[in-house]
Write a protein that binds this DNA or RNA. Sequence first.
RNA 1: CAUAUGGUC
Length: 240
Amino acid sequence: FLYALCTINNPGELLNFMLDMVQRGCPPDVLTLNTVIHGLCKASRVDEAKKILDDMKIGNVCTPDVITFSTVIRGLSDLGWLDEAFDILHEMQQRGYSPNVLTYNAIIHGLCKAQKIDKAFEVIDEMECNGLRPDSVTYTAIIDGLCETAQLQKALSFWHGIVKPSRNHDDFIYTSLLRGMCKAGEFVEARNILDGVLKDGFAPGIVTYNVLIDGACELGLKMEAYDILNQMRENNLTPD
RNA sequence: CAUAUGGUC
């Protein structure tokens, strides 16, 4: 049943199905509602998602949990409605819910996409005050935001200063960084970073190589592109 | 391994 809800990425059907349940005297549980809310958010129908959340808060149905709030925050962030996202964040805190890393990451991601990097750093401070450590998802959002706002130097120092020492880096982070460097025309430097990552024993995935090949092509570095392709094969990756 | 967050296309 839940699988069905996930697969139907059709908000209308989703809502109908849920109403159907209610009418048959099957009150949806929090998991069900979270799934529905997620579906609504994905379809950018955050208003309706918020309505369900309101119902839950009033106590008409079951009680929302951290995931419920996080999901709505994500939906709002993705639409760039950051003020509203913060409203929900504060509200959940007032109600005694503790946002977790995923909650914060959702809002940080939204801030970075909106190029409000300073604000994003403030949120990181807040989460650290609450005893939460930023994880690799947090870092990816930040690096991505810095690159998109042409603050490559900051991205690099963030990488060297914070991310690498935290030993919390993965494919996503350095791929984001490498993409920013390619876009800035720093292909050679990007390769240096990649080599460093390889030396540290990390195995970049296909997307990492795709980004570099794309970067090389954009910069007219045909030989470099082939070179990367060969390196990919050496690492037992099949180009997609 | 029942629901929420990040990278290329």
